[in-house]
């Protein structure tokens, strides 16, 4: 069972909000004593997802949350946009696939950086990505 300790909501509308999100994520990660490498992985993953959100979803909202499960502490982040959605989620999760002009390692690469990764998308309604990084994960 995952319990929530502290939660924060950040609206993402412009590029500069990415910096704000990174800083807030770092604050949360430091508070639960996450190691530097895992912090960097988490913030990089957040950076990737929020960029997708700005590019394809036209912005949205991100929640940053300190969570605990048994002995483990971690950070859960939920990225929610109301953009066009992803037509083929399985395809989007394959290495080398991209509709934009990025390097095409956005989603699968991001998944490798975190411990839990869940993507839900509905055409015309939007996309929600949930990630969790455990402090010792």
């Amino acid at each position: 069972m995952i319990l929530s300790l502290k939660k924060d909501l950040i609206k993402i509308n412009r590029e500069q909000d990415v910096v704000l999100l990174r800083n807030r994520t770092k604050e949360f990660a430091v508070k639960i004593k996450m190691g530097l490498v895992n912090q960097t992985k988490l913030i990089t993953a957040a950076s990737e997802l929020v960029r997708n959100m700005l590019r394809y979803g036209g912005g949205g909202e991100v929640s940053v949350e300190a969570v605990t499960k048994g002995r483990d502490n971690g950070i859960r982040m939920i990225f929610k946009d109301s953009g066009p959605g992803i037509a083929d989620v399985n395809k989007a999760m394959m290495d080398g696939y991209s509709t934009g002009k990025s390097l095409g390692l956005g989603l699968p690469g991001t998944k490798r950086l975190v411990n839990e990764f869940d993507l839900k998308s509905e055409l015309g309604k939007g996309t929600t990505v949930t990630i969790i990084k455990w402090a010792n994960g």
């Binding site: 530097l36 490498v37 912090q39 960097t40 992985k41 990089t44 990737e48 290495d95 390097l103 390692l105 699968p108 690469g109 991001t110 490798r112 950086l113």
Partner: peptide, 14 residues
């Protein structure tokens, strides 16, 4: 490049 950044980039596949 910072060690943590290098490890992250490799994991990312970059």
């Amino acid at each position: 490049m910072q060690p943590a950044v290098a490890i992250t980039l490799v994991e990312l596949g970059l």
